[in-house]
Simulated assay, not measured.
Amino acid sequence: MSSSVRSTKSSRNTAIFTYDSTQSQTTDHRTRHETNDEDMDRLVSDCVKYMLIMDNKKTAIKRSDIVKAIVRKGQTEPKGQAFKGLIDKVRLRLDQVFGIQLVDCPDKTNEYILVNKMNNKEIECRSDVQMYRTSVLSLVLSVIFMNGQSCAEHIMWNFLAKLGFDVNSKSQLLSINDEPSNNVTIKKMMTEQWVRQLYLKYDRMDGSDPITHEFRWGVRAEHEFKEIDILQFVCNIYNDSSKPEDWRSQYDKCQQHNDLDNEIHIITD
């Protein structure tokens, strides 16, 4: 029995699916001891649907949760090379059909995130809340980038305060649908929500006494934001005639990463 899927409206060009896991896991009367081509096609389809749904939360998608959602009773769980083959097919379909990149989380084994390759072109379709959150996130990422890829939290709080942001003040402009309260603070968003969503890393600084933390870019930020765009964002903040090239150290870093990305694309093409 195939999964039950309903299409609902989304800000993306594609639809968001409502996944009926109970039907997906309905017992198949035939006991399966291996994954044949028909099973694999069904697993790929269900895995793609499940990942698109879970991506709404912007948190890492775990292998264990994928298996629970798509493997039916009586069917052998794909392991080792079989699971790798499944993920490779899912990765290809997400890219070709939806324009979405499946990214392995470098800090955690068997966890994945989805990155919309059309992200920058869709910014005009976002709501006021989404636009505000993206602007604040861009600002935070720029502070980290301009400070050499990491930024101590006290430097971050002081910088935001100088720009008029009260990081402890609640704002409806930061709220999203799945939050328990209507209002959240910038500090909570930065140290909890964006950390869960892998936009930011918030780690204790080695040897700090009293204990303090630092911010760094998370894996999702590394794939959704280009450093050169962040550098241009900094130039826009200053609202003068400065160009990215004027920030020599940061500009050179952008060029190095861009050259590396080009080499990777050549190898994988």
Rank of each mutant, 00 (worst) to 15 (best):
S2P: 15
S2D: 11
V5I: 13
R6F: 13
S11L: 03
S11D: 04
I16H: 06
S21R: 02
S24L: 00
S24M: 05
T27H: 00
D28Y: 00
H33N: 07
T35D: 07
D37Q: 13
M40T: 06
D41I: 04
R42C: 04
K49N: 14
K49T: 10
M51A: 06
M51H: 02
K57Y: 11
S64V: 10
K68C: 07
T76M: 12
E77K: 15
E77F: 10
K79P: 00
G85Q: 06
G85S: 08
L92W: 01
R93E: 11
R93Q: 12
F98N: 01
I100H: 02
L102E: 01
P106S: 06
T109S: 09
T109G: 05
Y112M: 12
I113R: 02
N116V: 05
M118T: 05
N120W: 03
N120S: 10
E124H: 08
V129H: 08
V129P: 01
V129S: 09
M131H: 07
T134I: 08
L141M: 08
F145E: 02
F145M: 10
F145Q: 02
G148A: 04
G148W: 15
S150G: 04
A161Q: 10
L163W: 01
N168P: 02
S169E: 12
K170R: 12
L173G: 10
L174Q: 09
I176A: 01
D178F: 14
N182E: 14
M189C: 07
M189F: 03
W194I: 06
Q197I: 01
Y202D: 01
G207N: 06
G207A: 05
T212H: 14
W217E: 06
G218E: 05
F225D: 01
K226L: 10
E245L: 11
Q250K: 05
Y251K: 01
H257L: 15
N258A: 15
N258L: 12
D259N: 14
D261A: 14
N262V: 09
N262E: 12
I264G: 04
